[in-house]
């Protein structure tokens, strides 16, 4: 985790303090708690994608598929299996994670543009399935008829179903666990090997590193994390719809990572925060959100290819 390491402890500490206190300062600055929860969930999704994009150097452009599978998995679990939030999270994560691991095995031998095209195309399979399989998924209208359930752990009772703030802290806990695992992963020899593959795949191969195996594991883990985020997203909205699986969401996730800075650990979270807040604000002003987001893509590519944190860090070292 060279990125966070270089900026030292203050930045991560500041992020955690801001996140912990979010329900208290979001209101006064014109936000609301559910907006904060959205940032956390989409930030986690963008950070999961960035395991591949920024840290392995593999361009996956179809990650919404695994996000959406997590969402549908969680929703279907609550609707048909049992009224349990932890079970929904588990089944959602497994659905997306397993599908990702299986399809990942098909595509890890491709690189660059080819990899991007195959991930985009495969991502759309699940969109069509969700769109067409009306009886199970609700088709175009989306999956309804489920709601997140309170969690009871012995004497403790978490009122996450009705209380938005309690749900925020529940999501924050999930976020912290997932992000902690990601940080551990990137600090491990395995994570270092991913960086080596990113920097010079041929050299890594000559050193005897099984490159395809590493990329496949990274892909599968990234899918597990992002479907966990997707499951949380379904719980947040009590709803899942085919747009959770569509490639335009994949594009949004990539732009979040790039906007925040894909070479840094926390960049995608920052990118997600900027994106979600802009989306919330702009779509309240105009119906032309698509043009706006399109323009954002163009401007980010032309002027901020290193992302916000990339610029900050450059100025810090200069």
């Amino acid at each position: 985790m060279s990125a966070a390491g270089r900026t030292g402890a203050p930045v991560p500490l500041a992020i955690w303090v801001l996140l912990l206190l979010a329900p208290f300062w979001l209101g006064p600055v014109g936000g609301y708690t559910a907006l904060g929860t959205r940032v956390l969930v989409l930030g986690l999704a963008a950070m999961s994608l960035n395991l591949l994009l920024g840290f392995t150097g593999v361009l996956s452009f179809g990650h919404a598929a695994w996000f959406g599978l997590g969402a549908y998995g969680a929703g279907l679990a609550l609707k048909f299996v049992a009224l349990s939030t932890p079970l929904a999270l588990l089944l959602g994560t497994l659905t997306g994670g397993l599908a990702g691991a299986l399809l990942g095995a098909l595509i890890v031998h491709r690189r660059g543009i080819y990899f991007a095209m195959v991930t985009i195309a495969f991502g759309q399979v699940f969109y069509y399935i969700a769109y067409r399989w009306n009886s199970l998924t609700g088709g175009d209208d989306g999956l309804r008829g489920f709601a997140r359930q309170d969690i009871t752990l012995g004497p403790w009772h978490l009122d996450i179903a009705g209380n938005g703030t309690a749900f925020y802290y529940f999501v924050l806990t999930c976020f912290a666990v997932a992000v902690g695992l990601m940080a551990l992963l990137l600090r491990s020899p395995f994570g270092r090997t991913l960086l080596a593959i990113r920097e010079n795949e041929r050299r890594a191969r000559f050193l005897g590193i099984p490159v395809e195996l590493h990329i496949w594991i990274a892909f599968a883990l990234s899918c597990v994390f992002i479907s966990f985020a997707g499951a949380l997203y379904a719980l947040l909205n009590n709803f899942a719809d085919p747009n959770n699986l569509h490639y335009s969401l994949s594009g949004d996730l990539v732009i979040m990572a790039v906007l925040g800075g894909m070479r840094s650990f926390w960049g995608p979270l920052l990118g997600a925060a900027v994106f979600v807040v802009l989306q919330d604000y702009v779509s309240s002003l105009t119906t032309n959100w698509m043009s706006f987001v399109g323009l954002l893509f163009v401007l980010v590519v032309l002027f901020f290819p290193r992302g916000l944190l990339g610029i900050l860090r450059r100025q810090g070292t200069a």
Partner: peptide, 8 residues
């Protein structure tokens, strides 16, 4: 990403 934005 750029052409993706243009598509929008």
């Amino acid at each position: 990403l750029l052409t993706f934005g243009l598509a929008f």
